[in-house]
């Protein structure tokens, strides 16, 4: 007979209608309302400090910490190592190829974007939707600037210092560590663009946790940058 689930009809949790601030625009939402999260649903379970989605994102970010720890450890392991037999001064090293100027501007962009997304969420909490969208757009812009800056820095490293991922272990670890971080920034930028598109059509209820959780991810990416910046550009240079 095989495994079967019961024949009884699928239980549906009663979802309170989302409080859409602008009922007219609800027509334009293509997303299924029932799939969108809402804190207004009655929680039948034991009280907990974090909501389910918050716990999920925290757990995910913990796994990200483990990932970056590995990359950072690898960077530290190869710090100061050169190719056996290479003439000192000929190979690109952190000291002779990394510059601080551009990366400081980059860091200012990225770190201030943590502030702008925070201000945006604050505006959202107060119901100032336009202001929120503006802050979110500024965050996206700052994130993109960071990526452009990183790309420009890499261009300089490749053309002027002839540092590629295959040059030496410094190149391998540097591009992998910075690249992984930039990849995470890109994911954040894309996610925020999607969020902006959804929010511009006002498809999320006021209680929806998604914007908050996206900001957690973004703060995490910034925090990791502080560690990477300190290690790669200050201690390791």
């Amino acid at each position: 007979m095989g495994f079967k689930t019961s024949r009884r009809s699928r239980f549906t949790i009663r979802v309170t209608p989302h409080q859409i601030q602008n009922p007219d625009s609800a027509e334009s939402c293509t997303l299924n309302q029932a799939t969108l999260p809402s804190a207004a649903v009655h929680n039948p379970y034991q009280e907990s400090r974090f909501t389910t989605k918050e716990s999920g994102i925290v757990a995910f970010l913990c796994s990200e910490v483990a990932l970056f720890s590995t990359l950072i450890t690898t960077y530290i392991v190869f710090l100061g190592e050169t190719i056996p037999g290479a003439i000192p001064g000929e190979m690109p090293t952190p000291a002779n190829s990394l510059g601080l100027g551009l990366v400081i501007i980059n860091s200012i962009c990225l770190l201030s974007s943590s502030g702008t997304i925070y201000l945006g969420l604050k505006a959202r909490g107060k119901g100032q939707h336009g202001l929120y969208l503006a802050w979110l757009a500024l965050t996206i812009l700052l994130g993109t600037l960071f990526l452009v800056g990183t790309g420009y820095e890499w261009y300089g490293l490749i053309t002027e210092h002839h540092l590629t991922i295959g040059t030496n272990t410094f190149g391998s670890t540097f591009y992998t560590l910075i690249g992984f971080h930039a990849f995470h920034v890109s994911i954040g930028v894309v996610t925020m663009c999607i969020l902006w598109g959804i929010e511009a059509r006002r498809c999320l209820s006021a209680e929806c946790e998604a914007p908050e959780l996206v900001s957690w991810y973004w703060h995490f990416v910034d925090a990791i940058w502080i560690v990477i910046f300190t290690l790669v550009y200050i201690i390791g240079r």
Binding site: S63, A66, T70, I83, I165, S172
Partner: peptide, 24 residues
């Protein structure tokens, strides 16, 4: 959550070694 991401990172490094000429 603690153990699998380091493996993933190491495997990415290995792929970089094999395909991009990195030297991990």
């Amino acid at each position: 959550l603690l153990a699998f991401p380091p493996l993933t990172a190491a495997q990415v490094m290995l792929l970089f070694d094999r395909y991009l000429g990195a030297h991990f």
